[in-house]
Design a protein around this nucleic acid. Structure first.
Lengths: 227, 227
DNA sequence: GGGGCCCTGTCGCCCGCGCGACACTATATA
DNA sequence: TATATAGTGTCGCGCGGGCGACAGGGCCCC
């Protein structure tokens, strides 16, 4: 898959927005530097909230998603330390249409749009990084769309595993270990399949000795031979 | 659908980027102002091209899409006069992963990234408009994803009709007329369904007197009662 | 340590819709 | 006006996978 690896490379380049942003903030705003703690399952924001901040994750895992008319939850992404969310506020979103929820106890650093815009005014590099960040989200979403719409459930789960391995996995020899407490239900919501299907597929893959997993981690035997 | 109408409002605000951009360009660059003509089916760019321009559509219709591994074509969007494409170049995309193709004879105004960045440096408003434009694309894509993954074919086609009516339709009394030469195949590619299904659904809707159509236009009787 | 709750695993039903096939009709080409 | 070509309409088959149901296993909390 030429496309996926290209997208991956591009990604890593833009992660360090966090490092650009936080020092700046410290320098400019001194003790206004603020952290907020959330307990497991707390919401950072919910639909209809006014969108006035973007957030940096200092520690913990945050789930971004929204609810369908029938109340079913759709998960767009699950983010961890160093990642950014709520960036659409910057792009003109006035009230949130998605929610952000802590999946475990978490520490978040909020930044008002005003603050950020001020920073962007005097830091061209930052402006383009932000542009890039949002562009990246767009490309990831395009890829996800293609996956969800045109591939079968098995492929979707496999691609999800590969992606996750690339972002979050730890390489040990040939094997990649993904430490994760994602339940099958979570994976189902992320891949647009049903819980049962995920269970079945995962077990098939384990059967074929392509992966192994328990409740704490997923182990991919050889990421290049997973299909 | 609260979501869709909110998204719609937001959209209209950002369309006039064209008006901001073109006067500027004329002012700053004088006779470097350039138009390129494309014949029907010509490609503006194809995957692997280096991404060095963004484009304004002066006249005609441009199809944006890409090809799956099996060669099948996926259409992401179809754009017309006044709209912008190729904007990911600005967000750091170095080589294109999608294609842009003229659906009829078309006139396009290209703008190099360098030119545009220069303009953005000295025009904050433009910078934020661009950010907004890309953010908008992101939101539209999120909506599309949700539609494609969680709604059945009928709903997808109906929502597509509504969306198109909102962007491109002409209101005449209660009715909305969408002048379009989209074939059923086009609509299928845009809604992620099959050609046959589109035909059937469209005829069902005609039967129920909710819409009418021929090869040149689609007429929606009452956009608020289409479901 | 016991009761409740959530996660995992498996089976079978059923339905949405993609897809091939084929006939018919409008539009472009000669 | 004849002929090729692309778009439309309809039917029936088949399969992927959602979903309900239920059983077993872990884990947390009182």
């Amino acid at each position: 898959m030429a496309t996926s690896s290209a997208a991956a490379l591009w990604y890593f380049e833009s992660v360090n927005l966090y490092h650009i942003l936080c020092p700046h903030k410290v320098k400019k705003m001194g003790d206004k530097h603020e952290f907020i703690r959330y307990k497991k399952d707390d919401f950072v924001y919910v639909p209809e909230d006014t969108a006035s901040n973007i957030y940096l994750i200092v520690d913990g895992r945050i789930k971004i998603g929204h609810y369908l008319d029938d109340g079913k939850e759709v998960v767009s992404s699950i983010l961890t330390t160093g990642e950014i969310f709520g960036e659409l506020a910057l792009a003109g979103e006035d009230t949130r249409r998605d929610f952000a929820q802590a999946m475990c106890d978490a520490v978040i650093c909020p930044l008002t749009i005003e603050e950020l815009k001020a920073l962007m005014f005097e830091n061209k590099e930052l402006s383009f990084k932000i542009l890039k960040l949002i562009g990246l989200r767009l490309m990831k979403l395009e890829r996800k769309l293609e996956l969800l719409v045109f591939k079968d459930a098995r492929t979707r789960v496999i691609e999800f595993l590969k992606d996750t391995a690339t972002w979050k996995g730890q390489r040990v020899g040939f094997e990649t270990m993904i430490p994760t407490k994602l339940t099958h239900k979570d994976i189902a919501a992320l891949t647009g399949t049903s819980r049962q299907t995920v269970t079945t597929i995962l077990n098939e893959l384990k059967e074929q000795n392509l992966i192994n997993f328990d409740r704490k981690k997923i182990l991919i035997r050889d990421i290049n031979n997973l299909r």
